[in-house]
Computed example of a mutant assay.
Amino acid sequence: MNSNLANIINNSKSLQLLNAYESESDEDEKLSTSSTKRALNDLPDDIPVKRNKLEKLPLPSFVIETEKIREYEDDPSLHGGRIRNFPHERGNWATYIYLPYKGNEYFSQLVDGVADICLPITKLEIVNDFHISLTKTVILKYHWIESFVSTVRTKLNANCLKRFQLFFNSMEVYTNEEKTRTFLGLNINSGYDQLCDAVQIFNECLKEFKLNSFYEDPSFHISILWCVGDKKNELNGILHEINNFVTNFMDKNSDTDWTIEVNHFICKTGNKQFIF
């Protein structure tokens, strides 16, 4: 073999190596074609080409889960037809402050009786967790949670709220702001001023984080029953009958303690709860 022919062969090998390197670093998609793979496979064994780089590495599991969260689509059929008020986005935590209420066996009978009266109008579902909302449901970024909870705790301690009692005695029909759900709620008619004092404190905290305040002239209540859609007019048509039942039931069971002892508040943000 003369020297010119040897140079041509060596130059050809060098060009093949250069092409393989450039394709590996800049054009991964082209490496996946069969013609390019054949060209690399034809190279001598002593040429250090990393063929394992031709195959794409699998995505880490946390990246896959993140993509699942981003691609999440709400399915109302999975939760009784309810529609989310906020889009499901990674890092957004639905947050609100409330007073919990457990009720008792007589309270359960009261709820069942009201539901029976409403059956000719619509079937109502019992609320999973009885409570009195003291803020709207707002969105907190994850990195705000600790600071927000600390702010609420500090302001409550500074204002030295005393324990108090609540009492309810009448029903009212409510809808959410989007008119996608209707509720029947028991109105609070004793302890209203103390609840307003608490709401003012929470509004100050919300304002610091540029979040929406609670309603002006709020109607504090315990939602007990709900249905999908706007059924306010239909249920208002039998509200007098409902309230007569509530009054008679409470009078009949007057030995039952219908008061609510207020000795703590709860902030729920996502799946976390903080007690004040």
Rank of each mutant, 00 (worst) to 15 (best):
Y96Q: 10
Y96E: 09
I97R: 03
I97Q: 03
L99I: 15
Y101I: 02
Y101W: 09
Y101R: 05
K102C: 02
N104A: 04
E105T: 03
E105I: 07
Y106V: 03
L110K: 02
L110T: 00
V111H: 00
V111R: 00
D112P: 00
D112Q: 10
D112M: 05
C118T: 11
P120R: 11
K123N: 14
K123L: 11
K123T: 15
L124I: 12
L124W: 03
V127E: 13
D129E: 12
H131Y: 03
I132F: 04
I132Y: 06
S133I: 03
S133M: 06
S133L: 06
T135M: 05
K136R: 09
T137R: 00
V138N: 04
V138P: 01
I139V: 05
L140K: 00
K141R: 10
Y142T: 10
Y142C: 05
W144E: 09
W144P: 00
I145R: 02
I145F: 06
I145S: 02
I145M: 07
E146T: 09
S147A: 10
F148L: 05
V149R: 05
T151N: 10
T154Q: 11
K155P: 04
N159H: 12
K162F: 08
K162G: 10
K162E: 14
K162Q: 13
Q165L: 15
Q165S: 11
L166I: 06
L166Q: 10
S170M: 06
M171G: 06
N176T: 06
E177I: 10
E177W: 03
K179H: 14
R181F: 05
T182V: 08
F183R: 03
L184S: 09
G185K: 07
N189A: 01
S190F: 14
G191V: 15
Y192P: 08
Q194W: 09
C196W: 07
C196S: 15
A198R: 09
A198S: 13
Q200W: 07
I201P: 05
E204Y: 06
E204L: 09
E208R: 06
E208M: 12
K210G: 08
K210P: 04
N212A: 13
N212H: 14
N212L: 09
F214D: 00
Y215N: 11
Y215I: 09
E216A: 14
D217M: 13
H221D: 13
H221A: 13
